[in-house]
C-alpha cells in the first residue's frame, strides 16, 4: 500500500493562524484543503513537507457571498459549486468546469481554491518515487533534464486545472493572504508559463477567496477534452465567454485554452476577431483558427500532442457554437459522456 511519509500536522482555526504557521517555514510547509492533490503527491514523494497545515477547520474559507457578483471561499467544495443553482444559471462556464473535474467523490473533497492551486502535471513527474528514479528524475523535481523536451531550459509540466480557464474567462480575482500582506490578483495573473513556478502565489501566501464579477449578460461555457467521462485531467480545454448585443453581435469575447501550456492561455486575437460581428459560422471558424495557433500542447499528457492541437479547433468551435445558442448536447454527450446542460 502507498503510505504517506511522516509529517507534523497543524489544524488551523483561522486564516491568520494558518498564515502564521506557514510563515515559520514556508518552503517545507504545505497547505491541505481537500487533500486530493497534495496527498497523492506526498504518497508519491513528489512533495515531502515537514509540516502540513489543515485548512478544513477555518470557517471563513467555506463561506459564499452573493452580492455584487459572487465571492467564494477557497474552501468551498467543487460539489457545492456543482449543486448551486445560482452558479449554474449565472456562471455556466464555471459550473461546467467544476462538474467535469475528476469524480463525484473527489469533488466532494476537493475545493475551488485547491483546483486553482493544482500542481502542474506531467507524465514524467506524476509517478511514484521508484519510477522517477528509473528516469533519473526530471527538471521539475530532483533532476536536471526536462524529458518532455530535453533542450528546454524550463519545466514544461502542464496546467491541468479546470476551473482556472473558466474563471479567467469570467474575469475572476483571487485574494492572497500571508502573515503580513493581503493582495488581490486577477486569476489570469495568478499563473505564469513555467511548470515549476506556475503560480505567482508565494510559498507563504494562502489563496483565501475567489471573487467573480456580476454575470451581467455574459454567456459562458467550458469544454473539456479527456479520454474518459470521469477521473481524467483535461488534455485540452476551452473556456469561452461572450456578451452579445440585442441583434446578436458580439460586444465582448474571451477565449481561454487550458492544458496546452504550463498556464491557461488566453487566445486574445481569436476573441477580438469575434467582436463587432455575429457568431456566424465564418466568424467561429476564424476564431477557431486563431485559437489553434495559440495551442502548443506538449507530449506529456494522455493522447498525442499533434492530435490534441488539431482538436483544439473543433473544441473552440463547439464552445462558440454553444455560446451562440446552438443545441450542443449531442457533442457534449459524445465528448463529455454527459449533456452538461
Amino acid at each position: 500500500m502507498m503510505r504517506l511519509p511522516e509529517f507534523r500536522y497543524c489544524a488551523a482555526r483561522s486564516i491568520e493562524e494558518a498564515a502564521a504557521v506557514l510563515a515559520e517555514s514556508p518552503a517545507d510547509t504545505m497547505l491541505l484543503a481537500g487533500g486530493t492533490d497534495v496527498l497523492p503527491n506526498m504518497k508519491r514523494r513528489q512533495q515531502v513537507p515537514r509540516t502540513v497545515v489543515g485548512l478544513r477547520g477555518i470557517p471563513a474559507l467555506g463561506a459564499q457571498h452573493n452580492g455584487n457578483g459572487l465571492v467564494l471561499g477557497a474552501g468551498v467544495t467543487l460539489t457545492h459549486i456543482v449543486r448551486d443553482p445560482n452558479i449554474r444559471a449565472h456562471y455556466p462556464g464555471l459550473w461546467q468546469a467544476a462538474a467535469q473535474i475528476a469524480t463525484p467523490h473527489l469533488r466532494n473533497m476537493g475545493t475551488i481554491g485547491g483546483n486553482l492551486c493544482l500542481d502542474t502535471r506531467c507524465t514524467y513527474y506524476d509517478q511514484n518515487y521508484e519510477w522517477r528514479k528509473a528516469i533519473d528524475f526530471c527538471l521539475k523535481k530532483d533532476g536536471a533534464v526536462c524529458w518532455v523536451a530535453t533542450s528546454s531550459p524550463r519545466c514544461l509540466a502542464v496546467s491541468s486545472t479546470d476551473t482556472a480557464p473558466a474563471l479567467i474567462a469570467l474575469r475572476a480575482r483571487v485574494r492572497l493572504v500571508s502573515a503580513n500582506s493581503v493582495r488581490e490578483v486577477d486569476v489570469t495573473d495568478l499563473y505564469q508559463n513555467d511548470g515549476i513556478q506556475y503560480s505567482v502565489r508565494r510559498a507563504d501566501e494562502i489563496l483565501t477567496e475567489i471573487a467573480l464579477p456580476p454575470s451581467d449578460g455574459w454567456r459562458s461555457t467550458y469544454w473539456k477534452l479527456r479520454r474518459r467521462g470521469s477521473f481524467d485531467f483535461p488534455v485540452l480545454s476551452v473556456a469561452g465567454a461572450v456578451r452579445l448585443d440585442p441583434s446578436g453581435g458580439v460586444t465582448d469575447a474571451r477565449i481561454v485554452l487550458g492544458a496546452v501550456a504550463s498556464r491557461p492561455m488566453e487566445a486574445r486575437e481569436a476573441a477580438s476577431t469575434l467582436v463587432g460581428r455575429p457568431l456566424s459560422d465564418e466568424a467561429i471558424a476564424e476564431a477557431a483558427e486563431q485559437a489553434f495557433a495559440v495551442a502548443k500542447p506538449m507530449d506529456n499528457t494522455d493522447f498525442t500532442l499533434h492530435w490534441r492541437k488539431r482538436v483544439s479547433r473543433a473544441f473552440v468551435t463547439y464552445a462558440l457554437r454553444e455560446l451562440r445558442g446552438d443545441d450542443m448536447r449531442d457533442e457534449r454527450v459524445k465528448t463529455a459522456r454527459q449533456a452538461m446542460g
Partner: peptide
Amino acid sequence: FRRLPARLSSALVHKFPSLLEYKSPTSLD
C-alpha cells in the same frame, strides 16, 4: 513504454503505471 533519448539515458519505463493514466472505462463510458 517510453524510452528516453539514448544519448542522455538508458531508461525504458512503463509509460503510466497508474490507474489514472492506464485508461479503464468508467460507468459513463
